[in-house]
């Protein structure tokens, strides 16, 4: 296992939670949707924190780059956080159409972001971060 496989697995885990949330909303299971939304948002927040506080600084230190790809990833995290806030708001109002529309937007944003990370950024972390194995051990303690 390396950083790419572990972090890609985290993405798939978040996808599973996302699919379960959509399913609950479709079935009008609002109590279930509340719980699933809370756990989905928590997993996403934890993953963003892992990347922003551990992974990206390690890559920046290894490559010497400060802006560029990691800055774009941080910016997209911010956009996803805002959409998750919208999602919570729509859910609170029991607005099924609003939830569906926000989910659709969030899914596309989330997946094009994951594509960039899984195809380029994570493999780069594996090859450029000198103590990638230690970092992986740290991340495995806090994420599934």
């Amino acid at each position: 296992m390396n950083l790419t496989t572990h972090l890609s697995a985290v993405h798939r885990h978040c996808d599973d939670s996302f699919a379960a949330l959509e399913q609950a909303v479709r079935q009008q299971d609002w109590a279930g949707a509340d719980a699933l939304c809370a756990s989905f948002c928590e997993e996403m927040a934890q993953h963003f924190a892992d990347e922003e506080n551990r992974l990206f600084p390690a890559l920046e230190a290894a490559t010497g780059m400060r802006g560029g790809p990691t800055a774009v990833m941080r910016y997209e995290h911010e956009q996803m956080r805002e959409l998750m806030e919208d999602l919570n708001r729509d859910l609170l109002q029991r607005d099924a159409r609003g939830v569906a529309a926000t989910c659709d937007t969030l899914l596309v944003l989330m997946q094009q972001h994951n594509m960039k990370e899984e195809n380029i950024l994570y493999p780069m972390c594996d090859s450029r971060i000198p103590d990638a194995a230690t970092l992986l051990q740290e991340l495995r303690h806090v994420t599934p």
């Binding site: 911010e78 529309a101 926000t102 659709d104 937007t105 596309v108």
Partner: peptide, 25 residues
């Protein structure tokens, strides 16, 4: 799939932080 997402993304990038823009739908 791609046209509404591109429109949403460009609108979001043009909007001030935390401003809610219309969803893709």
């Amino acid at each position: 799939r791609i046209v509404p997402f591109l429109l949403w993304l460009h609108l979001k990038n043009a909007a001030p932080p935390r401003h809610r823009v219309p969803a893709m739908h």
